[in-house]
Design a protein around this nucleic acid. Structure first.
Length: 289
RNA sequence: GGAGGGUUGGCUGAGCGGUCGAAGGCAACGGUCUGAAAAACCGUCAAAGGCGUUGGGCGCGUCUUUCGUGGGUCCGAAUCCCACACCCUCCG
């Protein structure tokens, strides 16, 4: 499995490694599941897909929602369907853990969710604390989304945040125990990442990112419309923002994303970090397997 | 040449006599993470110098200086006055 920040070059390594292993690739990316979002999400090219079969891309239309749990179920189904080795690559931390670690998502309910979203967060916080005085230690009470989810789970299952943490699977997740035998390699070019991000954005533009964004305009759903590049370049396409502004905003957003990805993976003790410039990534990975 | 506006921390931008080393935003940095995650959220964040702490450094504590520059008013100035420098707008 290969993880790392965006623009680290991990996908190219994945293709090469998978080819040598006779493996298939499973993308661990929250945005590549959307059809039509190809250039901006740096999706594997048709050429790459011809070399190695890719899974977990182009699953739904961008107007739809694809939850982490949907992702978990489908990815595991694919992995379990064949004995052949798999190379998992991507930069979505939660998705990665949902697939390989024993994450068990508790139930959700659309109607209830809608109701909670309309409720004043402080009311929900009060409800949570009334049921569980220690809730603040488990849930970020300043974060509306987390609070909503915690209340949703509580109302649906009667279980409080403090009760849930003690579940054995939760403990396993906290201990970074995966349910699949796997080696995890992190790719990070360090200082060079910022420049790689710039170069890749230029390349995306010259291969038609703007046209792609224009084409998808209006058809992006709640999640897809937040994707880096699409969110910042849509105003450019509609004439509401200048090209310079859009590109600058995209660069910033990409960098911010990379920072969050690094923060996520940094604390995973299972990851062996490699530098794509100075290390022979392919050889190192082949040796591990 | 004349009239007016401006010069604040890495950037932007409030403050217009005391509670201001200075709001807010951005950037930066650190962190959180179980059904929206490329999401959402939290924290830190000016510089220079003196003294103390230390074997030394980091850090920490403490004091001083710094809001274009120099002077002045005032118990007290980023805030008021004067001069100078630079920038912008308008009129010639």
């Amino acid at each position: 499995m290969i993880v790392g920040p965006t623009a680290s070059g991990k996908s190219a390594f994945a293709v090469e490694i998978a080819e040598r292993l006779g493996a298939g690739i499973v993308s661990l990316d929250s945005m590549q599941v959307y059809r039509g979002m190809d250039i901006g999400t740096a999706k594997a090219t048709p050429g790459d897909q011809l070399r190695v079969p890719h899974s977990m891309i182009d699953l739904v239309d961008p107007g739809e929602e694809y939850s982490v749990q949907d992702f978990q179920i489908e990815a595991r189904r694919i992995i379990d369907s064949s004995e052949t080795p798999w190379v998992l690559v991507g930069g979505s931390g939660l998705h990665m853990r949902a697939v390989i670690d024993p994450l068990e998502f508790l139930p959700t309910d659309e109607t209830l969710r809608f109701e909670l979203e309309e409720t004043e967060p402080s009311v929900l916080v009060a409800e949570l604390l009334a049921a569980d005085t220690e809730a603040g230690a488990r849930v970020d009470l300043a974060n509306p989304r987390r609070v909503i989810r915690a209340v949703e789970v509580y109302r649906l299952t009667g279980r409080t945040p403090s009760e849930i943490v003690d579940d054995p699977p939760r403990r396993a997740v906290a201990a970074y125990e995966s349910r699949y035998p796997c080696r995890i390699v992190g790719i990070d070019p360090g200082e060079a990442l910022a420049e790689r991000i710039d170069r890749r954005l230029d390349a995306m533009i010259s291969t038609g990112l703007l046209a792609e964004v224009a084409n998808l305009r209006g058809s992006l759903g709640r999640t897809a419309s937040q994707a880096v590049g699409y969110a910042q370049l849509t105003p450019v396409v509609t004439g509401e923002a200048t090209m310079d502004h859009g590109l600058g905003a995209t660069r910033k957003a990409t960098w911010a994303l990379a920072r969050r990805q690094r923060a996520w993976f940094r604390r995973d003790p299972r990851i062996t970090w490699l530098d794509p410039v100075n290390d022979d990534v392919v050889a190192a990975v082949m040796e591990m397997t």
